[in-house]
């Protein structure tokens, strides 16, 4: 933010505070969110307000909820009560989050406020915005059919210290297939093996938190941080 004027910085802090309080109109809030996607300072300003305002709840006394609240949560989230079936099941449980993310992607793409891809591929067939729901990690992936590579632009977020981000392709009901570890640099490319290229349309891309060098098991081992649907350009 060092290249910005003080009044601009002040305005951003005020806006972030209004956003945290829920005082912005729907349009203003959407515009603010779109800016947060690309501005880590703005995200930090929001996080600071969220922390400061949350201190107002400190004097609120706890109220023990009745037992039926948990029973309903459990019945809603785990209707089968089977042992967890692992990663794909969790993905299915994220229906709401994925839908919300998809709406955001659509809003950003159709709003014309979407940053240009890192390189302009001659044949950009598909693209996906792989994003965390809170926009703390946003990876734009554009498939260039001419070279069979995904052009990667990590617009927001970074691997945790000593960790790597790994990109996964999930086609239909199939298990996630690794596309490789994301480049350390914000921008780079990941080749897509011939056999996987036909699976891209309609697939979901996901990014997980993994040890350096990627998952040792061939399946995601860490948290899935971001997801996004592959769309036609």
């Amino acid at each position: 933010m060092s290249d910005r004027d003080q009044p601009d910085r002040d305005e951003d802090h005020i806006l972030a505070g209004e956003y945290a309080l829920g005082l912005l109109s729907a349009e203003e809030a959407a515009a603010f969110e779109a800016r947060m996607v690309r501005d880590p300072d703005l995200r930090a300003a929001y996080a600071q307000w969220a922390t400061d305002f949350a201190a107002m709840t400190d004097e609120i006394a706890p109220q023990a909820p009745p037992a039926h609240v948990w029973q309903r949560i459990e019945a809603g989230l785990f209707p089968d009560a089977r042992p967890r079936a692992g990663w794909m099941r969790r993905l299915a449980l994220w229906g709401g989050g994925l839908a919300a993310a998809a709406v955001l992607v659509l809003a950003l793409v159709t709003g014309g406020d979407w940053g240009a891809p890192p390189q302009a591929p001659a044949e950009a067939l598909y693209r996906a915005e792989v994003a965390a729901e809170d926009r703390s990690l946003v990876v734009d992936a554009v498939y260039d059919a001419a070279t069979g590579t995904l052009l990667i632009d990590r617009a927001a977020g970074a691997p945790a210290p000593g960790r790597a981000l790994e990109l996964w392709l999930i086609a239909g009901e199939a298990a996630p297939v690794s596309l490789g570890v994301l480049p350390e640099d914000r921008r780079g490319s990941i080749p897509v093996p011939d056999a996987l290229r036909p699976r891209l349309p309609g697939a979901v891309l996901a990014v997980s938190d993994e040890p350096p060098g990627g998952s040792p098991t061939g399946a995601p081992t860490g948290d899935v941080l971001a997801t996004g649907a592959v769309r036609d350009t």
């Binding site: 996080a47 609240v69 809603g76 969790r90 989050g97 965390a132 990690l137």
Partner: peptide, 28 residues
């Protein structure tokens, strides 16, 4: 409030994977 509490924990379950990347303390 009890009804919203149910909604809150469903959101927490669905979004727990995104917790550690947003920079807020757990209670915040």
């Amino acid at each position: 409030a009890e009804d919203v509490l149910q909604e809150i924990y469903v959101k927490i379950w669905h979004n727990a994977a995104r917790y550690n990347v947003n920079g807020l303390s757990p209670m915040t």
